[in-house]
């Protein structure tokens, strides 16, 4: 338990009367890829936002390398440097080129010299096939390119964990593959990843463990073979049957 990179203990979070996270406990180990699956409104996104301290949790603990980062009043900025986050709708800054998007945080947060970070950013862009887009504004890119750029932007801060919130949900089907490839690469390089996803086939292929959330409850944690082969919980079975039926059709 204690060697976990990220440890969520009894997380509770409500928006008004609506409980979106009910007593969630899960550990993520270094280099592990954990997928969160579940219907919309099941609390996946909220959980990720809470880990990045974008939304405060009501109760419980979030431990990063054994340090409780969810203490009220804890300075969130150093934590966010260690935890990168990528959003469903990319959220690139539209008034900056791809390269400027990537350079902003390292320059302003880590105080890196422009030249150093440019070199590093270009290496990253090259690795993810975006080098020719460095000086292009986001609105000239396809959704897949924008999302890859957003991932590179998060990577440029050299995070220890990446949180990916349904990063393929806003993409046209033919663009999903290129973003999933990037995630495979990240896993191969040993990044610790926690991702909320609707791509069941992908979750089955790359996950070390899969968490099923339903109505804010973490109902089941299992290795992918078990989760997709023989899920324990009746609600998990129901959910997977429904989702897999539609996804197999497409």
């Amino acid at each position: 338990m204690s060697d976990a990179k990220l440890s969520l203990r009894n997380i509770r979070k409500s928006f008004g009367p609506l409980e979106v996270c009910k007593n969630i406990t899960v550990d993520v180990h270094k280099g592990e890829l954990v997928c969160l699956i579940g219907g919309s409104g099941s609390g996946k996104s909220t959980l990720l936002r809470c880990i990045n301290l974008l939304d405060p949790i009501d109760d419980g603990e979030i431990l990063l390398d054994g340090v409780d980062i969810s203490v009220p009043g804890f300075d969130p900025d150093p934590v966010r440097r260690k935890i990168g986050m990528v959003f469903q709708s990319f959220n690139l800054f539209p008034h900056m080129t791809v390269l400027e998007n990537i350079k902003l945080a390292p320059m302003k947060v880590k105080r890196m010299a422009s030249r150093d970070i440019t070199e590093q950013a270009e290496a990253l862009l090259d690795r993810f096939g975006l080098l020719d887009k460095a000086h292009v504004y986001p609105d000239r890119l396809s959704g897949g390119q924008q999302q890859r750029a957003a991932i590179v932007r998060a990577l440029a801060m050299e995070p220890e964990i990446m949180l990916l919130d349904e990063v393929t949900s806003a993409l046209d089907p033919e663009l999903v593959g290129e973003v999933l490839d990037v995630i495979r690469q990240l896993k191969a390089q040993g990044m610790t990843l926690l991702l909320a996803t609707h791509e069941m086939g992908f979750a089955r292929e790359v996950s070390d463990r899969v968490c099923f959330l339903s109505d804010g409850e973490l109902l089941e944690i299992a290795p992918p073979e078990k989760m997709f082969g023989a899920p324990e919980h009746a609600r998990t079975q129901q959910f997977l049957e429904r989702v897999l039926r539609t996804q197999n059709l497409s």
Partner: peptide, 24 residues
Amino acid sequence: SQRSAARSLGLSEASMMRYVVLPQ
């Protein structure tokens, strides 16, 4: 979502305002 993105990158409130929010 622009603020979320800026904050998730570790930008301070002031940097977020100056480099992300105000120019737009």
